Computed example of a mutant assay.
Amino acid sequence: MTTDVKNVDFKQLAVSGVQGLHPYQPGKPIDELARELGLDEKDIVKLASNENPTGPSDKALAAVQQQFAELTRYPDGAGFDLKATLCEVLGKEGCNIRAEQITLGNGSSDILDFITRVFVNDGDNVVVSQHAFSIYGLDAKMAGGEALVAPAKDFGHDLDAMLALINDKTRIVFITNPNNPTGTWLNKQELLSFLDQVPTQVLVLLDEAYFEYVAEADYPNGIELVNQYPNLVVTRTFSKAYGLASLRVGFGISSPELADLLNRVRPPFNVNAFALAAAQATLLDNDYLANSVALNNAGMAYLTGEFTRLGLSYIPSVGNFISVKMPAGIDALAVNRGLLQAGVIVRPLANYDMAEYLRISIGSEKENQVFIRALESVLAEQTAAQVNA
Rank of each mutant, 00 (worst) to 15 (best):
K83P: 02
G55D: 11
T85M: 03
N52E: 11
V89R: 13
A84H: 04
L61F: 00
F80S: 15
D76V: 12
Q67N: 08
V64Y: 00
L86A: 08
C87W: 07
Q67M: 03
K59A: 07
G94E: 10
D76S: 13
L90E: 08
E88W: 08
Q67V: 00
A62K: 09
R73S: 06
K92G: 15
E88N: 09
Y74V: 06
A69Q: 11
G79L: 11
F68E: 02
V64I: 14
F80R: 15
A69P: 03
N52P: 03
E70Y: 08
Y74Q: 03
G79D: 01
E88P: 02
Q65H: 10
L61P: 00
E70M: 11
G79C: 09
L90D: 09
S57C: 05
G91K: 14
Q66G: 05
Q66N: 07
A78T: 15
S57D: 01
G91Y: 14
L90T: 08
T72R: 08
Q66R: 13
D76P: 08
G91V: 15
D81E: 14
D58M: 13
G77R: 15
V89D: 03
G94A: 02
G55I: 12
T85E: 03
T54M: 13
E93V: 08
A63C: 04
L90P: 05
L82I: 11
F80E: 15
Q67G: 01
Q67K: 06
V89Q: 13
G55R: 12
G94P: 02
K83R: 14
E93D: 12
K59N: 05
K83V: 10
G55F: 06
A84S: 10
K92A: 14
G77I: 13
V64G: 01
Q66C: 04
K83W: 04
N52I: 06
K92V: 10
V89N: 10
A63D: 00
D76C: 10
Q66A: 10
L86C: 02
D76L: 06
K83C: 05
A78E: 14
T85Q: 11
T85H: 04
A84R: 10
V89K: 14
V64K: 04
F80T: 15
L90A: 12
K59T: 05
L61V: 00
G94K: 01
G79K: 12
K92P: 06
N52C: 09
E88C: 04
A84E: 11
P56W: 00
T54Q: 14
A62T: 01
G79H: 10
G55T: 11
F80K: 15
L61R: 01
G79V: 02
A78R: 15
G94Q: 07
A69T: 03
D81V: 14
G79T: 03
N52Q: 07
E93Y: 09
A60P: 03
